[in-house]
Design a protein around this nucleic acid. Structure first.
Lengths: 137, 137
DNA sequence: CATAACTCCTGTAGCAACTACAGGCTCAAG
DNA sequence: CTTGAGCCTGTAGTTGCTACAGGAGTTATG
């Protein structure tokens, strides 16, 4: 009369499939407190539900948008406290956007430099490449 | 009659100052084989010279351009073998440029998304922010 | 019903590319 | 001669995962 079949709920692999999140990463997010500890079966298996799916999607989406773990922690805080306002969210998001724009312009600078250098390179079988010269200089 | 004054050469802090490289990073680069082991004084102090300055500058410049440690190892290999050709260098550099361009377009996608979302946000003191909605959806 | 194959559990080690610290010497100056 | 700086070493921490080892439970097939 033991209930060895999960009455309802998703196991880790199912949550993984639903969200596309690596199965090990789920446990990792739990360990660092981004995901709440789910209830367990009598044998200790994790049992997730739709709230976990939503929360994990939130986390994954935020990561995709380049938020760091701590930034996400902050966003989740706002969500959990349920007293978020547009103003608060903007406050967190705008500096992040600024960071991303800074990264983009960094990379574009690098791109221009690299492209220019490669263009100077004959691509022939001769030694003394202008790319290396640019690196050494 | 012991020579306790370094006859010639730079200590770690001086190499650090000349190149702007963090002093601990220098030892790190030595450990992983990007920098050669320098000669030592009788008491074990490292003694660098101008070749080390040049090599470290090469490494730092390459890092700035976004090359990973292993890519730099490859470039240094070419330099050391002294048989590099333009063609070889281009071969290593072009895929790297492609990577950087890919990163840029990723970031720009994120930037557009984030900027659009923030624009929808009233910035007022009301709850239910479209940014969070975008994240949850 | 036995056994193989699968999933789950835990803790821990590894990746990049550093950075920082602890504990011990050496060295130059006052 | 003592003080403080700078050097030495090995090791741990950082961020965001990913992967493995070793054990327990569960499912499928003969």
């Amino acid at each position: 009369m033991t209930e060895h079949v999960p009455v309802k709920g998703l196991q880790r692999s199912q949550l993984s499939n639903r969200t596309g999140c690596n199965i090990e990463t789920i446990r990792y997010y739990e360990n660092i407190g981004l995901m709440p500890e789910p209830p367990r079966t009598s044998k200790g298996y994790r049992l997730y539900d739709e709230t976990h799916v939503r929360r994990l999607r939130f986390v994954l989406r935020s990561r995709e948008l380049g938020f760091g773990i701590n930034e996400i922690r902050g966003l989740l805080d706002l969500v959990d406290r349920k007293c978020q306002t547009c103003a608060e969210i903007q406050e967190r998001t705008k500096p992040h956007l600024a960071e991303i724009r800074a990264k983009i312009s960094d990379l574009r600078r690098i791109e221009r430099l690299l492209a220019r250098t490669i263009a100077q390179c004959s691509g022939e079988d001769v030694p003394e490449c202008p790319i290396l010269d640019a690196l050494v200089a």
